[in-house]
Design a binder for these strands. Structure first.
Length: 227
DNA sequence: ACCCAGGGTCATA
DNA sequence: TATGACCATGGG
């Protein structure tokens, strides 16, 4: 079995799936709304929620903050956890308006901006980092459930590492390039949805030469060396 | 009838 | 600080 570096995993995923050009949204603000809606939720349901919400209100901070929370909840129903997420969206929108919107926030150092995002009710580490990377263009590595599963299967994780430990680990190894970080997280998610599933395990995985939990039966030895 | 999905908060020990 | 309960829809 080969032992791929973090950089080599990126190269293989990129070679297999190509550029992803994430995040799927019409504007930086919609990136942030989507980041909250997609918490522990399939993206297909988030798309339905956007389609349901769009006729009700403009997807913009002031209108969303002003909308009655019950109406907002009803409008985002397909995303699941709609009562929770309606409150979180409004808490976020109020903070965003109070903070002066992109005009002001864009000038904040990344560490300060991250701390401010984390202070908002309903914005945890992954949601904050989604926003920092895909809405603010900061070189922050996003860690999610797919990241943990993939690198866990590649035997690079023990399993108990907390979020900050993992984020710093990736950021210490990778060059701090925004486009690289955007692509890497996108590729991990795409690979996770299509291939690196809980079960059945790793069907047709491009990393099968290096992934101990990939099935042996299929193309166990094609002569590749997994660089 | 299950399991799973691009998390986070809160109460309890 | 470390688990566990809770939130809820929709697709496979």
């Amino acid at each position: 079995m080969n032992d791929l570096s973090i950089t080599q995993v990126y190269e293989q995923l990129h070679a297999a799936y190509g550029p992803q050009s994430w995040w799927p949204a019409d504007s930086p603000f919609e990136v942030m709304v989507g980041a909250i809606l997609t918490q522990n939720t399939a993206w297909t349901n988030v798309e339905k929620a956007f389609a349901s919400l769009r006729p009700v209100t403009p997807i913009a901070p002031e209108p969303l903050a002003a909308l009655a929370v019950e109406r907002l909840a009803a409008a985002i129903k397909p995303a699941g956890y709609f009562n929770v997420k309606a409150r979180r969206l409004q808490a976020f929108c109020r903070w965003f308006v109070d903070a002066g919107g992109f005009e002001r926030l864009i000038h904040e150092p990344t560490a300060d901006l991250r701390a401010a995002l984390l202070s908002v009710h309903g914005v945890g580490p992954e949601t904050a980092d989604d926003m920092l990377l895909y809405a603010f263009g900061r070189p922050v590595f996003v860690v999610d459930a797919y990241t943990r599963r993939l690198f866990g299967r590649l035997q690079k994780l023990a399993g108990g590492e907390d979020y900050e430990h993992l984020r710093r680990g990736f950021e210490a190894v990778l060059p701090p390039e925004v486009e690289l970080f955007k692509e890497y997280h996108a590729l991990i998610v795409v690979h996770g949805k299509q291939v690196c599933r809980p079960q059945p395990r790793c069907a047709g995985c491009v990393l099968r030469q290096s992934c101990p939990t990939a099935p042996f039966s299929l193309a166990a030895n094609t002569g590749l060396k997994g660089r």
